[in-house]
Design a protein around this nucleic acid. Structure first.
Ligand code: SF4
Ligand code: SF4
Lengths: 134, 134
DNA sequence: CCCAAAAAGACTATTTATGTCCTGTTTAGT
DNA sequence: ACTAAACAGGACATAAATAGTCTTTTTGGG
């Protein structure tokens, strides 16, 4: 239960590697993929998602590549994980929507709320700066 | 990310319902399934798993059914969840095996260890007695 | 023996995960 | 303008996990 997928794991490895680089230096996807040992085409998809929400900035064409979208200390692990895995949802009833009719009277529900809060809290307190060892 | 499957959700609902019953009263699977709104054949598989590890005790034949294997205050939510979903593994590197060669030098690894510990801690402190409202 | 009830195993359909491949678009440099 | 480098996006493929169903067997009571 509760497992990060490969995609999530790759995403973290990739962006942490990028964070460890100088911020003014664009990185080739091929370099990142090789360095963190991830299939390049797969990592491409992941970085596209990052790019869309501004976690990274991409440059196309010759001399292109990726740079971090913000300073590493301003990007949390939670953001990275949620960018590719979606929100942290320990059970359907914590989505905010009326997913389960039992929610109001259920004694289990608050437990999942607590799990969600705690996990998000842990991941939110870790930044790419910490992870890149800066 | 981190989602309980239907199986896990059904498992909890079923065993919590059972816990709310008098301990000397055997419950029919059909009754439990109807009460917690779960397909009976699916719940059967779940309760077979429970039975194997002693979370519930089953009686076959006429007048058979299920009773809780232990007093409700002695069964934690963690046990129930792990019985059907397997161990709480936020990422492959927290299984104990040498699943990732980067583990020793990885800054992300301790985060997953912490997530695992915290989640298990929350689930372990909740018993069926709490959940059944006893 | 007959019936009730769980155990066990085979089977199926749908969705998710984990990629690959191909084509297009942008851009720097000659 | 042309070319090569590099990301963007979509279609495709395969395998595994999920969410069940169905049938048969075993067990116990009357
Ligand atoms: S934990 Fe309670 S509220 Fe949440 S899905 Fe299960 S029954 Fe519904
Ligand atoms: S978090 Fe670090 S140790 Fe864990 S799987 Fe990823 S790279 Fe390996």
């Amino acid at each position: 239960m509760m497992d990060l997928t490969r995609k999530g794991e790759y995403a973290i490895r990739g962006i942490v590697y990028l964070a460890a680089r100088q911020s003014d230096q664009v990185c080739l996807l091929s370099d990142i993929a090789a360095a963190v040992d991830v299939p390049q085409t797969f990592l491409a998809k992941i970085f596209q998602q990052f790019s869309k929400i501004g976690l990274v900035r991409s440059y196309r064409g010759t001399g292109g590549g990726f740079v971090l979208g913000r300073p590493p200390e301003k990007i949390t692990l939670l953001e990275v994980v949620e960018a590719v895995e979606g929100p942290i949802i320990p059970n359907r009833c914590v989505t905010g929507e009326g997913e389960c009719s039992r929610t109001s009277s259920c004694n289990v529900h608050p437990v999942w709320v607590k799990v969600q809060t705690q996990v998000k809290d842990i991941l939110e307190k870790v930044t790419l700066k910490d992870l890149a060892g800066l």
